[in-house]
Design a protein around this nucleic acid. Sequence first.
DNA 1: AAAGGATATGTTCAGTCAAACATATCGCAA
DNA 2: TTGCGATATGTTTGACTGAACATATCCTTT
Lengths: 125, 125
Amino acid sequence: MIDGTGKTDPSLRIRIVFGDDAMLGPGKADLLERIRDTGSISAAGRSMAMSYKRAWLLVEEMNAAFQAPLVESARGGAKGGGAYLTETGEAVLSHYRKLETIVAQAGAAQIEGLLSLRSDVSSRK
Amino acid sequence: MIDGTGKTDPSLRIRIVFGDDAMLGPGKADLLERIRDTGSISAAGRSMAMSYKRAWLLVEEMNAAFQAPLVESARGGAKGGGAYLTETGEAVLSHYRKLETIVAQAGAAQIEGLLSLRSDVSSRK
DNA sequence: AAAGGATATGTTCAGTCAAACATATCGCAA
DNA sequence: TTGCGATATGTTTGACTGAACATATCCTTT
C-alpha cells in the first residue's frame, strides 16, 4: 500500500486490452475519476501520489486510444488552467466502473473458492 | 505478441490480488495449465518462451501463496524428473478459468460499450 | 559407473520504466 | 507588467526485472 488514500485495493483487478499496446486498467480509471473530481491533471496526480508528468502521459495515452479525447485541458487563466472529462471520458469511466461491479458480483463464487485455498488467512478482510 | 502459440489474447484480463504481493493472473494460470499438460516445468516454460528459471520462480510464488502447493515436482528418474498439479493446483486453475469465462460473459455489454468508443476500429475482431 | 534430462539456485548483465529534475508556455488577476 | 498555478515536454538518473550464464543435485537407465 503506497498511496495514502486508505483505499482498500480490490481483490479483483480487471484490465481491458485493446489491439496493440493501448489498455485500460484500475490506474487510468482512478486518474480519470480524480480529474473529474478535481478539475486538474496535476491535482488528480497529487491526490494519488503520481507525478504530473506521469499523469499527463497517461491522459495522452487515453486520449489517443479512443475516437475522441477523454480529457480536455486549458492552460493559463485565473487558476492557471485546468482539465475536465469530455462526454466520451465520462462514458468510458462509467462503463469501467460498472464493469467492475458487475464482474465482482458475477465472479464472487469463484473468487471465494480461490480465497478459501489461500494461505495467510489472518490477513483476509 | 511474443509467444508463438497463436493464442488470441483476450480483451479482458483479470488478476486476483491477495494481501500484499501475491497475485494470480493470466501468466501464472497459463503456466499452471502447461505444467499440467506437459508434466514438466521446463517444458511448460519452453512452450511459452519462458526460461526455466522464471517458470520455476513463478511456481515457487504460487506454492507459497496457497495453503498447499499447487505444483509438486521430482528430480532424477527415468526422464530426469517432472512436475504435476496437485489437487489444490487443479482446483485453482479450474476456478481461474471458470472465473474468466463467467466474467467475460457478464461484462460483455460494458466491454462492447467501451470498444464502441475506441479508435482503430479496423483492428477489431 | 557413466550418461542424460529435469529440477533447483546463485550470479551477472542489460534493457526498460518510472522518478526526478528542468524548462517553457499560457492567460487572467492584482 | 509581474506573478501565479497549471499545462506541456525534454532530459537524466536510478531502481527494478528479466535474460543469460553457470553450476549443482537427483535418480533411473544403459
